[in-house]
Structures are given as structure tokens and as C-alpha cells.
């Protein structure tokens, strides 16, 4: 009973915080006094309500989700493979490392503009998402491999364990927590940069394209509504991923080892 009252109190707090910020928003709207600068919460919700019932809306988010998932999957896969190789071989590391430093410090817009020249509009966001997330995954995987317990590696050498088994049974389980942390960072970042790339490349079905037309038509409530959709999707992804990994974490370890 006590636990349930604490829980009630917590959710009540959340609702109060939500109402507080919505009121601030409404207040700002009243003070500013012009819809184009700050649309009212009610306007945004109405726009969102209209959007949800159109087929275009669902097709749009489906395509955007596809691009983010594709970009993330490529970064995770390549980041893992290239990361392990560069952590185990100093020459490879020395070659790859400057490239990663450049990737990390180049403005994302420079990449988007060059990608517009290289790729079709629908593939630009995938490429940009990859470019931004790959260095993060790579850095964490390298850190994970470097942190491997050398006493275990020495033990495997004495017992003449095959390299592939050492990789699977010792390196991979050591990397997993590092990789998961990198993935969570990338989930948020992936959405932000993909949508930014969509704004500039405007593919046919894309959240970014709708943001772009909101800008063209000076439709602020549309801009707010689509932004809200991106935030929700990003949070949803992170939530699903966290739930999936914390539950699976231990099982994942044993899976790797089976």
C-alpha cells in the first residue's frame, strides 16, 4: 500500500511538471502574441491530430524510421568490426584514428552538402547518420577491447585456445557494455542528424521534408508538430532499446557463450 502511494505521488509529480511547462509555453504564446513566432499548445495539438489521420503521416514516419535504422545498423556493424581490428592492430589504429578525429570535428552540414552531390536524396540521411554514429561506436569498441583482462588472454594462450574462440568468448563479452552505451548515445544523435539531412535533401517521404515545407509556408504549428513527432520517436527508440538490453543483458552474455 505504501509502495502504491509513493508511485501515485511520483506520477502526480510528473503530471504537475508537465502542466507547469505547458503553462509556460501558453504564457510565452500570450506574451509574444503572434502565432508565427510561438504557436499555442492547442494549435500544435490540433495540427498533430489532423496529421495522425492521414496516410501520408504514417508513410512519412515509416520511411524516416527505416533511414535511421539503416544508418544505425551500418554504423554498429562496421563500428564493431573496424573497432575490433583497429584495437588489436596498432598500424590499423594509427591509420583509422586521424580519420575518426576528422569525422568527429567536421560540421555535419559540410557532409550533408557533399552527400547531396554523391547520393540520391533518400540515401543522404542514411549516409549522414552513419558518418555521425560510426566514430562513436568505433571509439567505444576500441576502449572495450583495450580494457580486456590480460590475465584471461594469457590463460587462453597457455591453453592454446583458437583465436576465433578467444574473440567470441573473451573479447565480445568485454565489449558488450561499451557497445550498449555507444548505441544509446547514437539512438538520439541518429534521429537528430538524419532529420537534419532530410531537411536539406528532401526525399519524397521524410519528416525532414515536412519540416522544410513548414519553413517554406511559415507554418510554425506544423514545425512544432513534426518536431514533437521526432522527439517522441527518438524517446521511443531509446526506451525500447534500454528495456530490451537490460532484460537481455545477462541472457545475451550466455548466448554469446553458447
Amino acid at each position: 500500500m505504501k509502495a502504491s502511494t509513493i508511485k501515485d505521488k511520483k506520477s502526480l509529480n510528473k503530471i504537475l511538471v508537465f502542466i507547469f511547462w505547458i503553462s509556460i509555453w501558453q504564457l510565452t504564446h500570450i506574451v509574444v502574441g503572434r502565432d508565427i513566432y510561438v504557436p499555442s499548445p492547442l494549435q500544435v495539438i490540433t495540427t498533430l491530430g489532423q496529421m495522425i489521420f492521414s496516410n501520408v503521416f504514417w508513410r512519412t514516419i515509416a520511411y524516416s524510421i527505416f533511414r535511421v535504422v539503416a544508418g544505425l545498423s551500418i554504423s554498429i556493424l562496421l563500428g564493431l568490426i573496424v573497432g575490433i581490428i583497429s584495437a588489436l592492430n596498432d598500424y590499423v589504429y594509427d591509420i583509422i584514428n586521424p580519420f575518426m578525429t576528422i569525422l568527429k570535428s567536421t560540421p555535419v552540414l559540410s557532409f550533408i552538402i557533399i552527400a547531396l552531390i554523391w547520393f540520391t536524396s533518400s540515401n543522404v540521411p542514411i549516409f549522414i547518420c552513419f558518418l555521425m554514429c560510426f566514430p562513436i561506436i568505433w571509439t567505444n569498441v576500441v576502449a572495450g577491447v583495450r580494457n580486456v583482462d590480460h590475465k584471461l588472454i594469457e590463460m587462453s594462450k597457455v591453453y592454446r585456445i583458437k583465436k576465433l574462440i578467444i574473440l567470441r568468448r573473451i573479447y565480445l563479452p568485454t565489449i558488450v557494455p561499451y557497445l550498449l552505451a555507444a548505441c544509446i548515445t547514437c539512438l538520439g544523435l541518429g534521429w537528430k542528424v538524419s532529420v537534419a539531412a532530410e531537411v536539406l535533401s528532401h526525399p519524397q517521404n521524410a519528416i525532414g521534408s515536412h519540416l522544410y515545407s513548414a519553413k517554406v509556408y511559415l507554418d510554425s504549428s506544423m514545425l512544432f508538430a513534426w518536431t514533437f513527432v521526432v522527439i517522441i520517436l527518438s524517446m521511443l527508440f531509446e526506451g525500447i532499446f534500454k528495456r530490451f538490453t537490460t532484460k537481455r543483458n545477462m541472457k545475451e552474455y550466455s548466448k554469446i557463450n553458447s
Binding site: K151, L152, M155, V158, I170, S254, I256, N257
Partner: peptide
């Protein structure tokens, strides 16, 4: 080889 410490894989 029996080591001073066990050197077991903690995740297995």
C-alpha cells in the same frame, strides 16, 4: 596451468 588467481571467465 593452475594460476595463483582462478582466471575464470566472469560471464560464463
Amino acid at each position: 596451468y593452475i594460476f595463483q588467481e582462478e582466471r575464470l571467465l566472469p560471464w560464463a
